[in-house]
Structures are given as structure tokens and as C-alpha cells.
Design a binder for these strands. Sequence first.
DNA 1: GTCTATAACTCGATAGAC
DNA 2: GTCTATCGAGTTATAGAC
Lengths: 204, 204
Amino acid sequence: MVKVQQDDNTQEKILEAARAVFLEKGMDGARMQDIADRAGINKALLHYYFRNKEKLFETVFLEAASRFFPRMVNILTADTSLFEKITRFVHHYISMMAENPYIPLFVLNEVQKQPKTFLAKVFGNRRPPIEELAKQVKKEVAQGIIKPIDPRQLMINMVSLCIFPFVAKPVVQWVLKMDEKAYSAFIEARKTEVATFIIDSIRK
Amino acid sequence: MVKVQQDDNTQEKILEAARAVFLEKGMDGARMQDIADRAGINKALLHYYFRNKEKLFETVFLEAASRFFPRMVNILTADTSLFEKITRFVHHYISMMAENPYIPLFVLNEVQKQPKTFLAKVFGNRRPPIEELAKQVKKEVAQGIIKPIDPRQLMINMVSLCIFPFVAKPVVQWVLKMDEKAYSAFIEARKTEVATFIIDSIRK
DNA sequence: GTCTATAACTCGATAGAC
DNA sequence: GTCTATCGAGTTATAGAC
């Protein structure tokens, strides 16, 4: 049916426009008019598809959050060495963020404004599988494979090194005098740089 | 003079309220009414002291930015070993952020919305003294004191490890199930954890 | 489904009294 | 310096025609 196809196209056009505008301006700074213009429609039609600004925002936010908190269960609970897990995690995470560099700051910012509302919605009851990784860290410490370290500190270090360069993208580019191309190369290099940086730190 | 004293008190009350509201809600989310209420005055008086919202915001932002980009010249250009510099930098930076945990996300968020405007205003012509540190890194690599590493990557690693836990504060607390006290202890521990993490990574 | 027109409301800013 | 009252621009949301 043509109508259904139209419907899908319009809805997708709206979502695409909404993603762009919300990610750039945030919930408060975004304007329904801007989203409508970008989607090539008018404001009334926006409200026809999404009852109000909040609903539209929530759709965009939850999608972004699911990318920001990716399901790394496969990697983190696999039957491999800690070093292997770290390498895979870092490569995977940096690659995902490189595809959507504005997601981290957007998500962290909106979470900060309404932590309880959004964290509950994003995670539900299940949190990241940190216990698994913590156990393995403790085990490899006991085995003398790695130096003693608080597993929580290690995890935060891993995530910090992956995400921060995106959260601070404009500052990084300014301070290191990088254009877009140089920045991309810098990020690409980090995939291996960060992995070895972490492993070199904890290896005995 | 009583009037002058009143003036100072009111201005400071306004700034204190403005800091709280802007840091929590950002430029777009902040309301002049909220700032007035918090300062115990009315909107008209706000506009008497600061012509408009933009001026008031700029005052708050520049103050916050100066804390976020602290003058570390003393530390980074001192005549000490690289390890000494790293240790001092990390301790100093984490301590500063711990005093104002909401500054990093606030500053990074507003910078992202108007990079050119704000970066120029914050830094003027002078950028952080990264060349000095880069030279020292290259020197100590050549001397065989530390492993080969891109100085830019090392610097971004240092800053990432210091700042990210504040940018992601609510998420960190949620995932690691920390109340305020546990979070503070975690951050306090990071001052030495991060320093040794970095040094262990690059030491030969 | 999509549009135009407009209602309803929020918010920054100003006028003017004290 | 500080207040009350209000204006006017900008925004979300709805009514109603096609």
C-alpha cells in the first residue's frame, strides 16, 4: 500500500531529523520547527506522528542510549583471557562511538538532568555484567598474571579512555590543532594505543 | 557605605544562584525566574545587575571554564621528571574537579554548542603548554626511560582518566551502586590509582 | 496523511513607582 | 537599588479544511 509506505518514510524522515537536531542542541535547545524543517514537513505533522516533544525526544534518547551502553555481554563473559577481553572491548567500543561521535555527550548530559528517570528506563533492572569481569580480575591478580588493582577502577579507566575523546571532541581538536581528518586518524590509532596502554599498565 | 555593601552582597547572591542553576540546567534549560527565586530577589533586579541572560551566563561560564582549564603551566614546565609531573598533574586535577563535580559536563556541553565562540574566549591566543610536555616525553623515550608512545595520546589519556568519572558521575554511581560517600572515597582513591596506572603503563 | 491558521502559554525583558 | 505589573517575541500544541 502506498499510504503505509508513505507513513513509514515520513516517520523515518522525522526520526532522522529529530536525531540530528536533538543530538546537536539537546532537549531544551531543540525546536520542533527545526525538526519539521529538516524533515521537510510542518509542525502539525510532527505532532500527528509523535504526540508531543517529550515523546519524540524519548524515542531519540532511548535509541542513543542503547548505542552508548552497548550489550558487551558477549565480550565480557566470554571464555577468554582478561587481556583478550580488554582488547576486544576497547576496539569495539571506540569503533561504535566513532560512528556517532555526538552520542556520548548527548546521553551523559540528559542523564545528568534526570538521572533517576532515564537510568531506570535505559537499564531497567539489569545492569552491565561487571561482576563477571571483577571476578576474573581478582582471579588473575591471585594467579600473579596482573598487578593488584581495584576492578572498579580498572573498569572506569577502560571506559574513560574510550569515551572521553568524544565527549571533549571540540576541545581535543582545538588543543591539538586537528581537522576532521586528523581527528579520525587519531581516534583510529587509539583503538590499539588504548588497549596496549591498559594492558601494559596491569601486566606484571 | 551601606549601599555599596548591599550591592556587593546582591551581586554575589545572584552569581551564586546563577552558578547553581546554570550548572544544573545549562544555558537553554535555565530560567531567569529560577535564578531570581534562588537568589531571593525578582527578575527585574537580575536585569539591573546583568543586562540580559546571555551576559549572566557568560560570566558564569567563563568562571567555570577557568576552573576546568586550570593553569598547569607551573607543573608541566617545571624542572622535574616526567613521572613526577604526571603524579602532580593527576592529583591536582582530580582534586580541583572533586570540588566542583558538575563543572566538566557543563563546560564541555556548552563548548560543544558554540565551539568557536567559547574556545576563543576561554583560551584567547595561548593554548596549554603541550609542546613542553611532548618534548620531555620524546626525550625520555629516546633515553630509554619510558616506552615509545605518541605524546598526544598520553596527554589525552591523562586528562580522560582524571575527568571522565565526573562527566559520567550519575552513571558511575548507578552502575557501581555508590552513594555520595562511596563515590567520594572512590574519587579520592583515584588520585593515586590513576597516577600509578599511567606510570606503570609507560615505564620500561 | 498533510496542510494552514491560530490558540495557549512560557519566558526574557522593560516601564515606571517607590 | 528594589519592587510590581506588563509587554512582546517565540514555542508547543491544537482545530479544522482538504
